[in-house]
């Protein structure tokens, strides 16, 4: 494509560095969460050791109920860590894919679980309302995950909202008509951010251009929708 026909000016081009920054931010959160789970497993193992020492000192048997409770807690946290690792692995492999058909609900659910701690840290609770029929777009998986992450980031840490850590109810719903598909991000209390400053950084603009989506602000700052032409239209 000649420079004159390029729909995406150089300043708005998605760079490898943008991808790396996003990968780094999410990896840091995930590894932090995993360390927390490991710490719980570690303390439960330590508690088993404490029980053994106590029983030896007092020459009394170890309480089997207590041991089975601890063992159940360890098992539960191993499952939790395993789920985290699987999600992180799915996220890491999202870089392998070129453009493909993607189920938007699946993409939102993955980002929501990967960034659960960030959302919680900012006092947010997120509800994802499944679409009545699958909502698909044709794009690069990693870029879509990045864009959804940015949308959730704006929703829970709206920088124009100085009380950014107050409780927020956030909802994601999907919509489509004959030609358009959209993901709508809703927040209560509403966003304080102006339409012009929504997704206004070079990276945000580049992401939107890359996945061919547009931003539509909802009335009274209730949130925003990301819209795209339906790939399966016709």
């Amino acid at each position: 494509m000649s420079p004159n026909n390029d729909p995406c000016p150089n300043t708005d081009r998605l760079t490898d560095m943008d991808d790396v920054k996003f990968f780094g931010a999410l990896s840091a959160t995930m590894t932090h969460d995993m360390k927390n789970v490991l710490a719980i497993i570690n303390e439960n193992a330590g508690l088993l050791g404490d029980l053994a020492v106590k029983s030896q000192k007092k020459a009394t048997p170890v309480d089997p109920l207590k041991v089975s409770t601890i063992s159940e807690k360890i098992r539960k946290n191993v499952t939790r860590a395993d789920t985290m690792m699987k999600q992180f692995n799915r996220f890491s492999h999202s870089m392998d894919h070129a453009e493909e058909f993607l189920d938007m609900q699946e993409m939102v659910m993955l980002v929501a679980s990967l960034s659960e701690r960030i959302i919680r840290r900012h006092g947010g609770t997120l509800t994802v309302i499944p679409p009545p029929v699958p909502c698909r777009i044709h794009a690069r998986r990693f870029a879509v995950l990045h864009l959804i992450f940015r949308a959730l980031d704006i929703l829970c840490c709206d920088h124009a909202d100085f009380a950014s850590d107050t409780e927020k109810q956030m909802t994601v719903r999907f919509g489509r008509d004959s030609t358009l598909a959209e993901i709508c991000f809703n927040r209560d209390p509403g966003l304080m951010i102006e339409r012009d400053s929504l997704f206004d950084s070079p990276t945000d603009r580049a992401l939107l251009a890359h996945v061919n989506m547009k931003v539509k602000m909802m009335d009274a700052g209730a949130g925003f929708c990301l819209c795209t032409a339906r790939p399966d239209h016709g």
Partner: peptide, 17 residues
């Protein structure tokens, strides 16, 4: 700590000490 399970088990082990 914001992990309730961690708080419970740590406080139990620390109290035992």
């Amino acid at each position: 700590d914001d992990e309730k399970e961690f708080l419970d088990i740590m406080s139990e082990r620390m109290q035992a000490r």
